[in-house]
Write a protein that binds this DNA or RNA. Sequence first.
DNA 1: GTTTGTTTAGGATCAG
DNA 2: CTGATCCTAAACAAAC
Length: 314
Amino acid sequence: MPRPGRNTYSDQKPPYSYISLTAMAIQSCPEKMLPLSEIYKFIMDRFPYYRENTQRWQNSLRHNLSFNDCFIKIPRRPDQPGKGSFWALHPSCGDMFENGSFLRRRKRFKVGSMQAADPLAPSSKPHDAAHYLQQQAKLRLSALHAAAHLPQMPGGYNLSPVTPQSSFKHPFAIENIIAREYKMPGGLAAFSATGYPLHNQLTPAWPHMYGSGMMDTAAPISMATSDYSAYGMPLKSICHGGQTLPAIPVPIKPTPTSMPGLPGLPTHIPAFLANSPQSLSPTSPQTATGQSSPAAPGEALSSSASHQSVVAVH
DNA sequence: GTTTGTTTAGGATCAG
DNA sequence: CTGATCCTAAACAAAC
């Protein structure tokens, strides 16, 4: 089994599970939702290993998408023709990350289980979650536009009191993982809006990107390209060459109290958005988490909702 | 016909 | 050892 610790995964299987990879892809996208094909692209772009045997892993990945509750399907809008739906992470699966690390799953995610105390409705209803995400996406879009026009809000036009509180930036955290590849040459890709949602949680959540000042790797928003997919997303920037992606993954962790009524503006997001580009490939011989399991690397998303096992609750 | 999505099934590995 | 988690394969149905 491939273990982290090599220079790259060019020829080895990445230590991430499909769930992790999928989560990375989804979170790398500002809209926080991607169609299947984009998820494939993301993975193939980043991990050469997956440029082969596509039939095999893609089948597994699809299986994971539909089998795990942490992934929710968001229907395409009528005006957004295309195949398949968008896939997003369940709003409640965020806290299943272990410090945001994609190398290790903290706990499985099952709708309806855990977070019993979480008012978060979606947890009990996939539809709600999907709806919520759509709303969020829309808001993101709006926020993005606003940000685009208001490049630098002094104090931060933050809609939410988000602060880079994330003291801990796990090297395997999605932010890092993705950030590493997406060092935008010239800026944050902006994304259009062709219809689909954009930042909402993000904008406010990424003060360092949109206005708080610390955008080192990320530059000001700029319409990167004109390659928008049919979904209204900049394919190029998002899933290609990974050169123009803004991609700052944000653990979709709506905090237990932020969604009840689809407030649209999650209050805080564990902004452990690191800028440190580094870890797509775990370089240390040891799995960052100190884990040694040769093949247990990747799971960070706690999602894999249980397998066939009858998961508790439900 | 191809892609997407759902299900079922079996094997392997890891943690408790 | 057992249960949880992951991976892979495969059959099917539905949508494009």
